[in-house]
């Protein structure tokens, strides 16, 4: 693929896609919860921007709507809700450093290479561009999963989950110029409901174990030793 032959809009999209990936890495290493929520909001905004670019280049009207929806939901509403919960739960100054940040980020790098390897069998020339962005989206999904594995804080895990959703959305937008509007609305609604449910869970967990550190949930295991 010769980058000089790629139209400018697509070049911008490449830049934005790589920024989305960067934000996944930052999200994983972000020590402070509030800052992590802001980082997540930026990822949502970038996804919305990419959707807008696809809308401009493809000329689909519903994509503009979907971009707007993404922006309000992922860059504004969900971060706002999370932020509110953090304040209510008095976690503003909560810090949670990863135990081995370097190892975690190297695993994430390995995941990126792995997802690239996964999409490599697609060799059709006209699909190359899409394929590459799909590789990035897949990497974002996997890193989202990794975030849920390495972080202990329940809210941070939710952020990982949401960024997985971001990755899926990015793949959908770049590969098929977005899903049908009705599905998108459904997914958006699901995410919103999930967010509300998570919020309720946070309070429940907090009440029962007085912390949001999910490692504490280990005590619930029946096969507890000693």
């Amino acid at each position: 693929m010769n980058l000089e032959l790629v139209p400018m809009l697509q070049q911008i999209m490449l830049v934005l896609a790589s920024m989305v990936l960067l934000i996944s890495f930052i999200l994983m290493d972000q020590v402070r919860l509030v800052a992590a929520i802001h980082t997540f909001a930026w990822q949502g905004a970038l996804i919305a921007a990419i959707t807008t670019i696809v809308a401009i280049s493809e000329g689909h009207m519903h994509l503009y709507f979907s971009a707007l929806l993404t922006f309000t939901l992922k860059a504004l509403l969900i971060p706002w809700m999370l932020h509110r919960q953090v304040r209510k739960l008095e976690l503003d100054h909560e810090k949670e450093a990863l135990e081995h940040p370097v190892i975690a980020s190297m695993i994430a790098v390995a995941l990126v290479i792995f997802s690239y390897w996964l999409v490599l069998p697609i060799v059709q020339q006209e699909l190359i561009f899409t394929r590459n962005v799909v590789a990035i989206s897949l990497a974002v999904v996997l890193i989202g999963f990794l975030i849920m594995v390495v972080r202990k804080q329940a809210i941070a895990q939710v952020l990982g989950f949401m960024s997985m959703e971001n990755g899926l959305f990015l793949a959908a937008v770049s590969a098929t110029s977005g899903m049908p509007l009705i599905i998108e609305l459904g997914v958006a609604f699901d995410v919103l409901v999930a967010m509300v449910l998570f919020g309720i869970f946070f309070f429940q967990i907090r009440e029962s174990i007085e912390s949001l550190d999910v490692d504490r949930l280990n005590h619930l295991s029946e096969s507890e030793k000693e």
Partner: peptide, 11 residues
């Protein structure tokens, strides 16, 4: 380096 390999060449 990865975005070069994945996004810019992508053979």
């Amino acid at each position: 380096m990865l975005s070069h390999v994945i996004l810019e060449i992508g053979v």
